[in-house]
């Protein structure tokens, strides 16, 4: 009989379909693994309400476990407690940076209009002389930035709390 620990290890091999460098564990979307009566229940939570990757993540989890002869798998989606970027693992943050996406910095106070956006170091050259191009980016979880020194545009994984 497979153990909970082994399931968690297998889930580390399931990657996020939009940011494949992150596993679903790094991303913090797997909230629980429950083994009972020969059933394996995996509890996941979406990053954003409309995240189109959730269905694929569910299918990829089932497939990965099936490849390892774990056939009775159920994936449940829960909304509460709501996902926050605090759940991104340290490991995940490093992987994001290497991949060219700046990991989340401290949150901006969204009630302050026209507040300075967070200072985000460029993942390419490390310069802190960067600017936000747009709060909204290529996916719900990102903003668009550009480095003023190396001029490289980059994604910033924006803070959600």
């Amino acid at each position: 009989m497979v153990s909970e620990k082994e399931i968690w290890q297998l889930l580390e091999q399931v990657s996020d379909p939009e940011i494949p460098v992150l596993s679903v564990i790094d991303l913090g979307v797997v909230r629980g693994v429950i083994l009972e009566k020969g059933m394996c229940k995996i509890i996941i939570t979406p990053t954003y309400s409309g995240c189109p990757a959730m269905k694929t993540i569910e299918e990829d989890i089932i497939l990965k476990l099936k490849e390892n002869n774990i056939n009775h798998v159920k994936v449940d989606l829960v909304l509460s407690p709501a996902w926050t970027t605090d759940w991104l693992s340290e490991n995940g943050r490093d992987k994001l940076r290497e991949y060219g996406i700046a990991p989340p910095e401290n949150e901006i106070d969204k009630s302050v209009l026209f507040a300075d956006p967070p200072k985000v170091p460029c993942p390419q050259c490390g310069s802190k002389n960067t600017r936000m191009v747009s709060l909204f980016g290529s996916t719900a979880c990102k903003s668009q930035y550009q480095c003023n020194d190396c001029l490289e545009p980059f994604d910033y994984f924006k803070c959600l709390k």
Partner: peptide
């Protein structure tokens, strides 16, 4: 991109 991002949140 911003409007479609917000649209996606709302549809979600």
């Amino acid at each position: 991109i911003a409007m479609t991002n917000i649209a996606l949140d709302l549809v979600g």
